[in-house]
Design a protein around this nucleic acid. Structure first.
Length: 580
DNA sequence: GCCGTTTTCGGCCCGACTGTTTTCAGTCG
């Protein structure tokens, strides 16, 4: 059983305990353990024989280690089995409805014997809920709407789409006079691949307490609001037509840093941070870091001040997941994370020769204008017929054109000749070695059959990278965000072999693909892989998607030294790749 | 159930908003 599945069982147990009105701290322990398990790069199944290794994980003690051993051998724990006798698994789904918490789920179960969504809808329509305490007309209406939304769309939003919405909304809010700054917080700021909702923090003279009402009014009447969910003194919540929920908070300048810190999260990071504050005789909320004894403000205006006051180095948002960043910040051991400007080249992009939108020259100029020093043009090979993939003859001719453009650019940017070759079912490539031998960069990618058994898929990739001309393994997992593909491959096996062979592993920056997640990337580093981050751009604007790739690298604690395409020149880069 | 720069017991993060409430419980982030 993999870590994700173990974490799911622990999380389920936490929810069941919640419905059972168990000790809240015990519940938190299960949640914390679930998160910790999910963040491990090593598979717990492989180290459960040695209890010491489990106990070394923060948040896992004797009891939880025993639970994990149980889960690995039986798929469950005695406690969970016990709870499932008392309640129903379908209740866990009820918790996902807005307004439905553990207390309410427990209540409708004991009072009405309702344990799933269909029965709940029926009971609500029949007016049975109104007889229960604190559930009136409004509650029922809201619940029915929530059920409808849940069935329609219960998914999260991709980070690039969320960012676009954030920018659109921000532009509208900015029209109100006296708004200085709007920052998206929450998981968007932390760079998660998907976000559940949008948190926008707003500050400026118009957000000071005595005048904020007018600005709140402005936000609450934005034209793109589909449904207004709540409006308080300085907060407005609404949904867009696509069901994305947006929370806008208008905050005075003096406490903006505290708010930013608070609403950026993650939740577990915040909990840990507040515990640290308490130990130091302070308390932290969304307005300020305060000294407990006299309620005096220690820090509030910026995040930097708050972290410093807690004896911590500034922690970048991408690292705020309570996975060791507090210890590292306390010991001045945070890595110097890679930034966008560290990237000097992009080694995977397409042109009009196959399925791209722009010419070689246009791509080169666009890359140059973005400050890149080298790129590789890597159009598709023939097996991808729907992209107008090239056969050997066309691929050779294409190289010539790339070389010509490279010359025309007169060294302002180097344009390397490459190809994205397809890995066929048996692991061979769809172009001849003679052709590949003429390429500076050969990216080998799998493009189909992700429904194959894992072993077959892995085998296919392992065989392909044995080809001595392959220098980069393109989007190695074929994972697609929101499609919720399980890892289609034994990624650790592949990373190990790629590392041995000197084949670089690509992190595909495209948010749709988001190929390697932060755990994969940490694993790649552990195994000594050469990592490159590429956009796989099909148009000039898609070159900008590199920022999303960088965010994921940062989330994996990677530095410029961990990534190959930070090399200062094309020659330096080629020297790092598998020799020809 | 976890954890230890007061502790192996006794703590464990914080506030806003909602609905149906004359004082608060539940949910949410």
């Amino acid at each position: 059983m993999d870590n994700i599945s173990i974490a799911r069982v622990l999380e389920e147990t936490a929810s069941l305990l919640e419905i059972d009105a168990a000790d809240p701290f015990r519940i938190r322990s299960y949640r914390r353990a679930a998160e910790a398990v999910e963040q491990q790069t090593a598979q717990l199944a492989s180290l459960a024989d040695d209890p010491k290794q489990l106990l070394a994980i923060a948040g896992i003690g004797k009891g939880m280690a025993a639970n994990i051993v149980d889960i690995l051998s039986t798929g469950s724990t005695p406690l969970r089995d016990e709870l499932l006798k008392k309640y129903r698994p379908s209740m866990l789904e009820l918790l996902r409805l807005p307004g439905m918490g553990p207390k309410t789920v427990a209540l409708i179960w004991s009072a009405l014997n309702v344990c799933d969504i269909d029965a709940l809808e029926e009971a609500a329509k029949a007016g049975h809920l109104n007889k229960l305490p604190r559930m009136g007309e409004k509650f029922t209406t809201k619940l029915l709407k929530g059920i409808e939304d849940y069935r329609k769309n219960s998914s999260r939003f991709r980070i690039d789409q969320a960012r676009e919405h954030a920018e659109r909304i921000s532009a509208l809010i900015r029209e109100f006079p006296g708004i200085d700054e709007i920052t998206p917080a929450g998981s968007l700021r932390r760079g998660r691949e998907t976000v559940g909702d949008l948190d926008l923090l707003v500050t400026g003279p118009a957000c000071e307490p005595d005048v904020v009402a007018a600005a709140v009014e402005h936000v609450a009447s934005l034209p793109l609001i589909d449904k207004l969910l709540a409006r308080g003194q300085n907060k407005v919540s609404f949904t867009l037509r696509n069901n994305l929920q947006v929370d806008v908070r208008l905050l005075p300048r003096a406490s903006y840093g505290a708010a930013l810190q608070y609403f950026t999260g993650s939740k577990m990071h915040n909990v840990a941070l507040r515990q640290r504050a308490i130990k130091r005789g302070m308390t932290l909320n969304e307005y300020a870091l305060l000294r407990v004894e006299d309620n005096s403000i220690v820090a509030a205006a910026t995040e930097e001040l708050i972290y410093r006051a807690l004896d911590l180095d500034y922690i970048p948002p991408e690292l705020r997941e309570n996975s060791g960043e507090l210890d590292a910040a306390a010991n001045h051991a945070l890595p110097e994370l890679i930034t966008l400007t560290d990237i000097r080249g992009d080694l995977h992009m397409h042109t009009v020769e196959t399925d791209g939108a722009h010419t070689i020259r246009e791509m080169a100029e666009a890359a140059l204008s973005r400050g890149l020093q080298y790129i590789a043009i890597t159009d598709h090979s023939k097996n991808l017929a729907m992209t107008n993939g090239m056969d050997d003859r066309r691929a050779i001719a294409h190289i010539q054109r790339i070389r010509e453009i490279d010359t025309e650019m007169r060294g302002s940017i180097r344009v390397l000749a490459g190809i994205e070759v397809d890995i066929l079912a048996e692991g061979e490539l769809d172009l001849s070695d003679d052709t590949l031998a003429q390429m500076d960069i050969v990216v080998a990618s799998v493009h189909s059959r992700f429904d194959q058994p894992v072993e077959q898929m892995t085998d296919r990739i392992l065989r392909a990278i044995e080809n001595p001309y392959v220098r980069i393994l393109g989007h190695p997992t074929g994972r697609k965000v929101l499609k919720r593909d399980p890892y289609a491959v034994h990624i650790e096996t592949i990373l190990k072999r790629a590392s041995e062979l000197g084949v670089a592993v690509e992190h595909n920056a495209s948010p749709a693909r988001a190929d390697l997640n932060d755990l994969h990337l940490r694993l790649a580093k552990q195994h000594g892989c050469r990592i490159v981050v590429n956009t796989d751009a099909h148009s000039t604007t898609e070159l900008d998607q590199i920022r999303y790739g960088i965010t994921q690298l940062r989330r994996a604690w990677l530095t410029a030294a961990d990534i190959l395409n930070t090399q200062p020149s094309a020659e330096a880069l080629l020297a790092q790749l598998r020799p020809r």
